[in-house]
């Protein structure tokens, strides 16, 4: 493999890890309670603004903004769960979409009203300069985002599949009434799922802000990537989102390099449509 091609694959993997991270919150909520959060992209957007505000007001880098964004967005998730989602999840699917979409509009334009429509970017050097390792160039911000993305997504997967609390959450998602009879409090588990998903989403937002522009409507763009990643990976599977995120990242950067930057989205969507046709439940989903 030529060096350039290797470089392209590595950048794709780093990007894909971030895709996986900001999609994992969406897939966790979808899998846990069969609710698709249409405000997910706007949660990411608020995580990004957290990083912007922490840098402009306090001069803090990702070391400060990542934990703060995690806590803030986790809180936002829990509040949304108790005030809205808890009530609409029993209703028709349309009410769920309407409710979370209304929340999306609310958050998006609250950000627009507060911060204005201008695009903000953080300085390139915030996370250190780019460097060359084994012939491959790494940009500090993307490397950090990719590595943390991979780590947090795997951690989320481990929490869900290897810990007692994860088993309890899965029990609630399988059958809330039966779980309740076993002494598990379903609402507490569901609120915890929103907290975990919110934290992952906040971390993702704070990291993306270090190399991507921040604007009130950026959530719309990111949400579509997340929807594709999640459907590609399969219903409720964090591991599926990770694999799908990495595949999408690599396919994007390869097609941008081999065919042309304009076509990278086209190739990803075509791939998605093919998956949909031949394996509609996604790579790791249950039909």
């Amino acid at each position: 493999m030529s060096m350039t091609l290797l470089q392209v694959v590595v950048s794709g993997l780093l990007l894909g890890a971030v895709y996986a991270l900001f999609s994992s919150g969406l897939t966790l909520i979808w899998g846990m309670m069969n609710v698709v959060n249409f405000a997910h992209g706007d949660f990411v957007m608020l995580g990004m603004y957290t990083a912007v505000v922490i840098w402009t007001a306090l001069g803090g880098g990702p070391w400060a903004s990542v934990p703060v964004a995690a806590i803030l967005i986790a809180t936002l998730g829990v509040v949304s769960y108790f005030l809205l989602v808890r009530h609409i999840m029993k209703g028709p699917m349309l009410a769920q979409i309407l409710g979370t979409f209304g929340l999306a509009l609310f958050l998006r334009y609250a950000a627009f009203w507060t911060f204005g429509a201008n695009f903000r970017t953080l300085p390139d050097t915030l996370v250190g300069h780019s460097f060359v390792l084994a012939g491959i160039r790494f940009e500090g911000s993307r490397l950090l985002a990719g590595v943390v993305g991979l780590g947090v997504t795997l951690l989320l997967h481990v929490i869900l599949t290897r810990t007692a609390i994860g088993s309890r959450m899965l029990a609630v998602s399988e059958d809330a009434t039966a779980a309740q009879l076993m002494g598990i409090r379903p609402q507490r588990m569901q609120a915890l799922a929103w907290a975990l998903a919110g934290a992952a989403t906040g971390i993702a937002g704070a990291l993306i802000a270090t190399f991507f522009y921040t604007s009130p409507t950026v959530g719309e763009t990111l949400a579509i990537v997340a929807f594709v990643t999640v459907s590609f990976g399969g219903f409720g599977s964090v591991l599926g989102a990770l694999v799908a995120g990495l595949i999408i990242g690599v396919v994007e950067s390869l097609s941008a390099y081999l065919i042309g930057p304009v076509y990278k989205d086209v190739i990803v969507y075509v791939l998605f449509v093919l998956v949909l046709w031949f394996r509609p439940q996604g790579l790791m989903g249950k039909a």
Binding site: L98, G99, G102, L105, F106, R108, Y109, A110, W113
Partner: peptide, 24 residues
Amino acid sequence: GRGAGLTFVVYGAIIVIIARFLPS
């Protein structure tokens, strides 16, 4: 301008309230 942003904040809030209290 920014005022339109505020309108959509209200618009979003109305949608949320309807989904919450009048899901049909």
